[in-house]
Nucleic acid binder design. Structure first.
Length: 239
DNA sequence: AACTTGACCAACCGCCAACAC
DNA sequence: TGTGTTGGCGGTTGGTCAAGT
């Protein structure tokens, strides 16, 4: 599963790390701390480049790393953070204790990305027309008074009730935020339409749909109730 | 049994920003 | 201010394994 060890023309070893190398690197970092990576190979007696040592430490030897299967909670959080930050794996990994950016990135590319794409594809083909119409209304809504817009527009829909707490909001309610929230709304509506995103059932909760409430007003959304909710909200807002 | 294919993931590569001098 | 160094980040590669043919 790992690259075969080779030594390049400069005498620098590449490829899979041996147990002995891991031991030397661990001993060095425990003694001197994770710094001066350029000096690490010489001081630790390793034929590796400093960069490789750093990577090995951060992704494999560092204490507290979690290995193995991801929980549904972790998957849900990764999905949500990816929506917010895109491929900023270090930011995403920072919210997942024990997971590295490399690991999260691999997990996304190997598992989650496919799920997202397949769900997005199935939902977009079925509701493309409705989405376009909805987007056009949203655009029109931008031009209206902000307060009124906030009080009338639809609630944010979460993919799963597992993760209400993970959405955040900047203090300012400027234009950028409005866009972000609108995009968020539409994306979530798309994804949540047919089924729960990961495994959890969702329930629409009208009491939480005040979009710009102090806690960022997370609405929770039900596939069972969505058909009627969607149309109901849509008509209320734009009908 | 032999071969092919795809999934998985550790490791590498190249770029960039921050910092020191 | 310019240049070199360092650490950090995201994208990509390559080797192994398991499932399928």
């Amino acid at each position: 599963m790992v690259r075969a060890p080779v030594v390049d023309k400069d005498g620098v070893k590449r490829g899979a790390w041996s147990l002995e190398e891991d031991g030397k690197l661990r001993a060095y970092v425990e003694k001197y701390g994770p710094c001066k990576w350029r000096e690490v190979p010489r001081l630790a007696g390793l034929m590796r480049c400093g960069k490789s040592c750093r990577l090995r430490w951060l992704n494999y030897l560092r204490p507290g790393l979690k290995r193995g299967n991801y929980t549904n909670e972790e998957n849900d959080l990764i999905y949500k953070l990816h929506q917010k930050h895109g491929n900023r794996w270090s930011r995403i990994a920072a919210k997942l204790p024990g997971r590295t950016d490399n690991e999260v990135k691999n997990h996304w590319n190997a598992h989650l990305k496919k799920q997202v794409e397949s769900k997005a594809e199935s939902s977009s083909s079925k509701h493309e027309g409705k989405q376009k119409e909805l987007r056009s209304h949203v655009y029109e809504a931008k031009t209206e008074d902000f307060t009124e817009y906030c009080s009338t527009t639809f609630g944010i829909v979460e993919s799963s009730c597992l993760s209400q707490q993970t959405s955040s909001c900047d203090d300012n309610f400027g234009t950028e935020l409005i866009w972000e929230v609108e995009d968020y709304n539409i994306n979530q509506l798309q994804i949540g339409y047919y089924e729960d995103f990961w495994t959890e059932p969702c329930v629409w909760d009208h009491s939480q749909t005040n979009v710009f409430s102090e806690d960022y007003g997370i609405g929770i959304f039900s596939p069972q109730q969505y058909e009627t909710t969607y149309d109901h909200n849509y008509c209320d807002l734009f009908g």
